[in-house]
Amino acid sequence: MSTDFTGLRRGAPLGDPRLDLCDLYVFPSPKDPGRTALILTANPDASPMHPDAVYRIAIDNDGDLRNDIAFNFTFSEPVNGRQKVDVRLALQSEARVDAAVGSEIFGGLDVSFSDEPHLWRSRSGSFSFFAGARTDAAFPDSTVIAMAVELPTAYLGAAPDVRIWARCSVNVDGRFQHVDRAGHPWVSGFFPDDADRAEFNADEPNRDQGRWMGHLIELMGETGGYSRSEAIDAITAEGTLPDVLTYNPRKPARYPNGRTLGDDVADYRSRFLTKGRTPLTDFTPRQDFLPDFPYLCAP
């Protein structure tokens, strides 16, 4: 959660860029509308990932804001600049376990640090996967590590929508510490105080409204002159809290219904916080993406 609405990077969790979640994307495959891409970017240094961390994309498909499906990504110790990644698929109660549990759908795959991506497909053919260095869609001059999964849209279990978010947890002395999370884009600008941001990152989406609604209402009063009722209406309309991306695959994908790689979320977020008064006209995301999975361009 390192990107705020001004476009500046905030400090990494625990001072470690490897634990820093950047952006979460959810959109249909451009070539097959029956498939959905889930992409989590992290580590703005684009170096090997933390071997004691669990990076997770979580999906709630029944509206209780608890994980029903989780893709867990774990990385090996890097050796001579090379690294392996495992992907586990956890369902229901297993999807709520901090550790990387579930069925292994990809194991010991090479992370792509070169221009040529290693692309993988599961034995069943249902899942495609990529992990490696890619150009940051939000900051075209930056490089990040992308973890990308493409799967049949029906697997999400949308009825009619799902809620998707990401988490980074790191094993510290035998216990997992939740150090970052990602849902709506550029939310870290809501928490200029380091202690508040750390608490938010460690929390669960089902606590967001009760814990953080008052904070966001106050912030929007300061940034946009919102009254309390106006702020609540805007938060409700966007679904800002809880901090999860809502995605209805039957509707066009454009933030806040999912998020595509080319969505101008900087302008959107600035207008949201200032009640439409301040667009970010000097900030434009790149639009030249790959036509095929994993869609993000090589660095």
Rank of each mutant, 00 (worst) to 15 (best):
L40F: 01
A42R: 09
A42M: 08
A42K: 07
N43D: 09
N43V: 02
P44W: 10
P44N: 10
D45P: 00
D45I: 04
A46E: 12
S47G: 10
P48D: 15
P48R: 14
P48Y: 15
P48S: 12
M49D: 15
H50Q: 14
P51G: 11
P51W: 12
P51Y: 11
P51M: 12
P51L: 11
A53M: 08
A53Q: 11
R56P: 12
R56S: 15
R56K: 12
A58W: 01
A58G: 07
I59D: 12
I59K: 07
N61W: 06
N61S: 06
N61K: 05
D62A: 05
D62K: 10
D62E: 14
G63H: 09
D64Y: 08
L65A: 12
L65H: 11
R66E: 11
R66I: 02
N67Q: 07
D68N: 04
D68L: 00
A70N: 03
A70L: 00
F71T: 05
F71Y: 01
N72W: 00
N72I: 00
N72Y: 00
N72R: 03
F73T: 05
T74G: 05
F75H: 13
E77F: 08
E77Y: 12
P78Q: 12
P78R: 09
V79G: 14
N80K: 12
N80H: 10
N80S: 13
Q83Y: 10
Q83L: 08
K84D: 14
V85L: 06
V85P: 02
D86R: 03
D86W: 01
V87M: 08
V87W: 04
V87P: 03
V87E: 09
R88A: 13
R88T: 13
R88F: 02
R88N: 12
L89A: 05
Q92I: 00
S93H: 07
S93L: 02
E94I: 00
E94L: 02
A95F: 00
A95K: 01
R96C: 06
R96L: 03
V97L: 07
D98S: 14
D98Y: 05
D98N: 14
D98E: 13
A99I: 08
A99M: 11
A100H: 10
A100K: 08
V101E: 09
V101T: 13
G102C: 10
G102T: 13
G102L: 10
S103E: 15
S103C: 08
E104Y: 02
E104W: 01
E104H: 08
I105L: 05
I105M: 05
F106M: 04
F106E: 04
F106D: 03
G107Q: 05
G108A: 03
G108V: 01
L109F: 01
L109M: 10
L109N: 07
D110W: 04
V111L: 05
V111S: 03
V111G: 03
S112R: 11
S112E: 13
F113H: 12
F113W: 15
F113Y: 15
F113V: 06
S114G: 13
S114K: 15
D115Y: 15
E116M: 06
E116T: 11
P117N: 03
H118Y: 05
